[in-house]
Design a protein around this nucleic acid. Structure first.
Lengths: 136, 136
DNA sequence: TTGACTGCAAATGCTTTGCACCATT
DNA sequence: AATGGTGCAAAGCATTTGCAGTCAA
């Protein structure tokens, strides 16, 4: 999802497209990693130094509510980290470097569904994170 | 794992067994849910009203470091919740009630290992949480 | 025009810490 | 006796919020 797709979705949701928002959306769309609020703030400031931390928090909060971004709380970091909501996937975090690798698995998806069903639940959300060390 | 097992492990790890710690360990051992720091504090105070929040934080931190308890950060709650480290399992959280159901799955365990290996990693830790709505 | 949005600074609220005293080993 | 542990209160810190001004629609 690129910046203008995000803008469109925001407008469709009734959000006003202001300069700070445009910058934040472009930062998010351009990120290949999983930036923290602080990261987004730093990067946004490079494009428009007047942007405030409060706006970054407020905007990320809105985007999360709209489901346009995902808010992650990996257990190695103490802050939330964001990612534009594209295709469904999970993460493997390198516990030595903090590097995040994305992966998908059809089998795990099915298994999750199955487990929830067996327990009498409809699966709505899920969090799956693997933490590992690089093999030598 | 009962309270005296925990006490033994703490002593083995070099921790001094003080009155507040004994109370906190017994609260943890007696919990059938996944109490927050606040919960542990409240319950501990019933046994010994002089216990301070600082001690609860410090003790839970130590126990987590020793691996005697697990620190969870379920995404529906905004605070960490603890659980005595017994057998390996995962959680399904009822998004309407907050109720936590534990489950295990041999297949998922294998799959996790497999995925990490395929990505070139040795699996060290993992977090798997399902969020669902009770089926009607 | 007007309701939403923004930056700023102050407030919040969980968590951590410094300190002096106390208890376990 | 020595070291680690404790309660208290203050400090930290990420996040939220009140407010007055600003701007998109």
């Amino acid at each position: 999802m690129n910046a203008s797709d995000l803008e469109q979705k925001c407008q469709a949701a009734g959000l006003k497209m202001t300069a700070p928002r445009r910058v934040i959306l472009s930062v998010l769309a351009g990120a290949t990693d999983h930036p923290s609020v602080e990261d987004v703030y730093e990067r946004a400031k490079k494009e428009d130094s007047s942007i405030s931390m409060a706006t970054v928090y407020r905007t990320l909060g809105l985007l999360d509510e709209l489901g346009l971004v995902y808010r992650h709380e990996f257990s190695d970091a103490d802050h939330a980290r964001y990612e534009v909501n594209t295709e469904h996937h999970h993460h493997l975090i390198d516990i030595d470097t903090g590097k995040v690798i994305e992966f998908q698995s059809e089998e795990i998806e099915n298994m999750k569904q199955q487990i929830a069903r067996d327990l009498g639940y409809d699966l709505v959300e899920c969090r799956l994170e693997l933490y590992g060390k690089k093999m030598k």
